[in-house]
């Protein structure tokens, strides 16, 4: 089942005197349960592409279709709500809420969706145990290592059972041990929950684990390889 379709996507920045074509006519689609890496050198347009897929940025041209919905047609409020229900985010610098515990960070998005307390507790417990932090539920981000924080971030991204998870350089700040732990966890969850994972990365360890590798250069897809 197609969860994400990208049609002729363009993004042009006119901020400076020079016009920058960050994304230049990309066509892609992703099926349910994929574990895909978007790779490319710095400035190749990976993050811009991910931002447009996640509805954080508007394309200059083209369409992003998620589960049949053209997200470009959604208004400001609707796109936020759509993101909440359909997309999970994992950020490079974890971006957890520092005043909340691991448990509270994970259940935050479920709270926004008004899940019942029982449902929230059960899902939070399930996810934190799945990422190996069942015993650190009440720890605040400052009490966790970088790898542990990123695992909480993964659990949070999966909390409301989104259609896919977008992870922008998720291992960039992690050591190799934490990276392999995180990748194993994400792969397990990808299988168990059948949720599509899309990474932007230039980390070889992530690329090795990915089942599909899409290479971007100068805003264009130069290869799309399924292992």
């Amino acid at each position: 089942m197609k969860v994400l379709e990208i049609k002729n996507l363009h993004k042009i920045y006119n901020d400076s005197a020079v016009e920058v074509h960050a994304v230049n006519g990309i066509d892609l689609h992703f099926e349910e349960g994929e574990f895909a890496a978007i790779v490319g050198p710095s400035g190749s347009g990976k993050t811009t592409l991910l931002n447009m897929i996640g509805g954080l940025d508007k394309p200059t041209n083209g369409e992003v279709i998620i589960n049949g919905t053209k997200i470009g047609t959604l208004g400001k409020s609707k796109i936020i709500d759509f993101r909440m229900r359909n997309i999970g985010f994992v950020f490079q610098s974890y971006n957890l809420i520092p005043v909340l515990t691991a448990k509270e960070n994970v259940e935050f998005i479920m709270g926004l969706q008004k899940w019942t307390k029982e449902k929230r507790n059960a899902r939070t417990k399930e996810l934190l145990e799945a990422v190996g932090l069942g015993d650190r539920m009440n720890s605040r981000p400052s009490q966790l290592s970088g790898g542990q924080q990123q695992r909480v971030s993964v659990a949070r991204a999966l909390a409301s059972k989104p259609s896919f998870v977008l992870a922008d350089e998720p291992t960039a700040n992690l050591d190799s041990k934490s990276t392999s732990q995180l990748l194993e966890i994400m792969k397990d969850l990808n299988k168990k929950e059948n949720i599509t994972f899309i990474f932007s990365t230039h980390d070889k360890r992530v690329i090795d684990k990915a089942r599909r590798v899409i290479t971007i250069e100068d805003g264009k897809v130069t290869s799309d390889e399924i292992k």
Binding site: L56, R83, M84, S93, I97, I109, L112, R156, A157
Partner: peptide
């Protein structure tokens, strides 16, 4: 700023 951006990204609407 970054945290508020993250909250909006993960689905906390402007009203909230």
């Amino acid at each position: 700023t970054k945290e508020l951006g993250m909250l909006t990204a993960i689905g906390m609407n402007r009203r909230k």
